[in-house]
Write a protein that binds this DNA or RNA. Structure first.
Lengths: 350, 350
DNA sequence: TATTAGCACTCAAAGATCAAGAGTGCTAGC
DNA sequence: GCTAGCACTCTTGATCTTTGAGTGCTAATA
């Protein structure tokens, strides 16, 4: 791959990204650091088209990058912009006034800011909470045969669930059960709470089996619930202003945001760009997976807590996206998140 | 208002609702139970237009109902359809397998079904929980200086909130505080938890004031949180298939669903239809309020628990909506919800 | 007096035609 | 290996015409 051809590819992408129009040889020849004639550029562009990096909407139009074109551009010839001072200051203020232990709020702030500043949708998932262990279980009576199970993990996650029993429990039964749960579940990892384990637990209840069974079942459901990764999405409406995205697709996505989970959870590290046009091999299986919004792309990065991946942050936008502008924002904010939550941890350990 | 004119109005609405095209005099004259000539119908339609019930998109087009036209139609000359057997059976199965005490899930099921069957968006709010009183408050330590406040109301609502303190509490302080809260707050209505009352509470803490103040503050925020009505919205994407609704409006609504709260909370009882074109006087003030989605309408009904309004269910669709078909569904499902949750209560009282 | 047939008029929607302009591929020359 | 020139293609937008549905009005009719 010629050096000049890469330069031309970069020029096409840059021009197309800003104008939205197919870009012709003349426009590129006019650029200051291109010193060849339109005809030469036309020849090179024909080659780039052969390689599948560019394409023509129709015979007498300029060229448009394909998703492979964008890939090569991002890998080989993109010049990342530096973040303007004003934006940097703004991003520095995003987490002000937010309690560092409130991860949900941090993520909300981060995605909102990212969405506003990039004019795209911003998404986030926390990492699979596979290292969480149960730190506390409470059963609290709240009404006729109605009980609340409260589950707290070492990571500070809290969830509750109401549960109706066949009979009311007396004081003794309740304290027995609470002690029983603490004994058997304290320090146990959420991932270890298999249905089999719950069965064992129920049989271990002995005579209380029938009475308390539903509570154990409820507890199991609660633990499943806690293992769900939390998906945060913000600014989807920004996508509507892109004409190249289909409104129906966007709304479909709004109603079923979960579909991007497998893509977000794909195995990779560092900044990663994926396109709706390409078929992804998910880590979990060989089955291909395609994102619902046609002509879109997603840029994903990780944030860490004390060196361990704590979650991922992503930007969803049109394929025709100013990657050179947008990627630095994502890098900056993931780094900031990492610093924030990791620093906090150290602070705690003192 | 002539009897025949009402008949013609009904015919225009019915035809327009199904075809989506402005309806002309000839089409109406062709209907079996209309026995006058097109010319006569034209004269009547001119009168209906004068009354503001019909309008012409342009001079040489048929007539289209105005929102006043729909209002009169619904009040005076609509023939409500009967629900087809298949749909009735389907609605009867909607709540199967759902715990009756899980109101959130019931509402989810109801709105989802309603949205699917009407091809509109379905919304729900619970009634203001102004009669809820605090039945239980717990403070649970979950980590370094980190505490969870758990609040449970008589209505069975449960919420928790994490709270970070300056210092750690010892056993004694914790049990003191729990006892203190139970003493001062058990049986207290959420609406009575004014900031002033919280102030009193904090001063009553005496020497603990500084240490425990943040927890009281957290509790207050939690109570505010609980008084929020829960809004449920489902099937908004159905609205996108209506060309007469603006996509931007719909997405705006998706991102800020709260805007319909005041409309849903408007004072009325029974089935009520409102149009985005009319300006509503909200109960709370004289200020007018207009719904964001242009050319839309909302049909709202109530469901009850033991004779007291427990919440509202609504359908949002285009103004051009088959009211005769859709309203019976809303009536049926609110009735069903009422029976379900009220019956459950009786069952409890046995 | 209420209804109806007839007729001229209006207007949106859908095609048809045309010119302009941008961009290409190809060829021949530098 | 690069470039100027040229014929060719194809979209875009404007203009014009036709078509047809529907109306309002007037005069005739029951």
């Amino acid at each position: 791959m010629d050096d000049r051809k890469l330069k031309i590819l970069a020029a096409v992408v840059d021009a197309y990204v800003t104008t939205g129009e197919p870009v012709g040889s003349k426009a590129i020849a006019a650029l200051p650091d291109i010193n060849v004639s339109p005809a030469t550029i036309r020849n090179d562009m024909a080659v780039l088209e052969q390689l599948g990096l560019l394409e023509q909407p129709h015979t007498s139009a300029g060229r448009v990058p394909t998703f492979q074109g964008y890939k090569v551009y991002i890998d080989k010839c993109m010049h990342a912009h530096t973040i303007p001072e004003a934006d940097r200051e703004r991003l520095d203020r995003v987490f002000e006034g937010t309690e560092v232990f409130d991860e949900e709020l941090l993520i909300q702030s981060a995605t909102t800011a990212l969405a506003e500043i990039t004019h795209c949708a911003a998404v986030a998932v926390n990492a699979m909470p596979q290292f969480s262990v149960i730190s506390r279980v409470e059963v609290i009576p709240t009404g006729k045969r109605l009980y609340v199970i409260l589950l707290i993990t070492s990571a500070g996650n809290i969830k509750n669930k109401a549960c109706r029993l066949e009979f009311d429990l007396n004081e003794e039964q309740l304290s027995f059960f609470t002690a029983f749960l603490t004994e058997h579940l304290h320090g146990v990892s959420l991932t270890d709470l298999s249905p089999e384990r719950m069965e064992q637990l129920i049989t271990a209840l002995g005579t209380y089996m029938v009475t308390l069974g539903p509570l154990v079942q409820g507890l199991y459901e609660l633990s499943r619930d806690m293992m769900q990764q939390e998906l945060t999405v913000n600014g989807t409406r920004n996508l509507l202003t892109c004409q190249e995205l289909d409104t129906m697709d966007i709304v479909q996505f709004m109603e079923h945001q979960d579909v991007i989970m497998p893509l977000l959870n794909d195995t990779f590290s560092g900044i990663h760009v994926m396109f709706s046009e390409e078929t992804h091999q998910t880590a979990s299986g060989s089955a291909g997976q395609t994102f619902v919004i046609g002509n879109s792309s997603m840029i994903v990065g990780q944030y860490h807590k004390d060196g361990r991946e704590a979650g991922r942050l992503g930007i969803i936008g049109p394929m025709r996206l100013d990657y050179a502008r947008v990627i630095p924002y994502l890098e900056y904010i993931t780094q900031k998140l990492t610093n924030l939550i990791s620093e906090n941890k150290e602070d705690d350990d003192i």
